[in-house]
């Protein structure tokens, strides 16, 4: 198996608080990896470090064998190859649904308008939002916004897609529509790294589950092992609480 990203001994502090305390892990092509852990354990920070929205202090992030933290590495090009879906959707409020999905292709990938439109339509169709191309984000429900955000990320045709709690800001009745899109993407072979509190998604859809606690990776295994016989006491406790809660 070859890796999309391989992370070695990654450290990140905010002021005096060390949030990531030496992270080692990797995501392979075609894999769906779920990152779970309690609030404040550093999951978002790790995801943001991976696509350089935050700058890690120490360690390596290898992408095609090159360390992206190296001085002079083309960060914008790298980011274009990793999609990101945010908890708060973060659609461009000044742009229509279609323009949200074409602007990156046109400005960053330098595609022409027509080609960008066709690619955008393909992915908007995939998430069931192609009927709304003229709508502005403020006119959409949360679930619709998140599906457009996924189409926007897919329109860049990235090598992997990172999700940071994509359903946590949604009303319960809208979680299903987004989860369904994500499951379809997983089935289609897209490489995904998903921070989630949806244990059913982690258990049933992912190939691997990574449990993080207090800035370190405690356990990294196939879902069957994590959910049925976790090796670590902290994993066991977290899952017990998580399953009671949801």
């Amino acid at each position: 198996m070859s890796e999309v990203v391989k992370i070695k001994n990654l450290h990140k502090s905010f002021g005096k608080n060390e949030i990531l305390k030496g992270i080692d892990f990797s995501v392979n092509y075609g894999e769906v990896v779920c990152l779970i852990g309690s609030s404040g354990s550093g999951k978002s920070t790790l995801l943001r470090c991976i696509n350089m929205l935050e700058h890690a202090d120490k360690g390596e992030i290898l992408f095609h064998g090159e360390n992206v933290l190296e001085k002079g590495y083309d960060v914008t090009k790298y980011r274009a190859k990793l999609g990101m879906v945010f908890q708060q959707f973060n659609l461009f409020d000044n742009k229509t649904v279609l323009d949200n999905c074409t602007v990156g292709q046109i400005k960053v990938l330098k595609k022409n308008k027509e080609e960008a439109r066709q690619i955008a339509m393909k992915y908007l169709e995939k998430v069931g939002m192609d009927a709304y191309i003229n709508a502005k984000p403020r006119q959409l429900s949360g679930g619709q916004k998140q599906r457009v955000a996924i189409a926007r990320a897919l329109s860049m045709e990235p090598e992997a897609l990172l999700f940071d709690e994509p359903t946590s800001a949604l009303d319960p009745e809208m979680v299903g529509e987004v989860m369904k899109v994500m499951k379809d993407l997983a089935d289609s072979g897209l490489t995904m790294l998903v921070v989630t509190h949806e244990m059913s998604f982690a258990r049933d859809v992912s190939n691997r589950v990574v449990f993080m606690d207090k800035g370190v990776i405690v356990e990294d295994d196939i879902p069957a092992n994590i959910f049925n016989n976790p090796k670590n006491e902290r994993t066991r406790e977290f899952l017990k609480r998580a399953i009671e809660k949801y």
Partner: peptide
Amino acid sequence: DEGQFDAAHAIGMTHWQTMTNVILPQ
């Protein structure tokens, strides 16, 4: 919102592209 910057950067926009396409129009 910070999220507008994050989203623009996440699809690979430069500072200039982020400003002219997303932030300044708003």
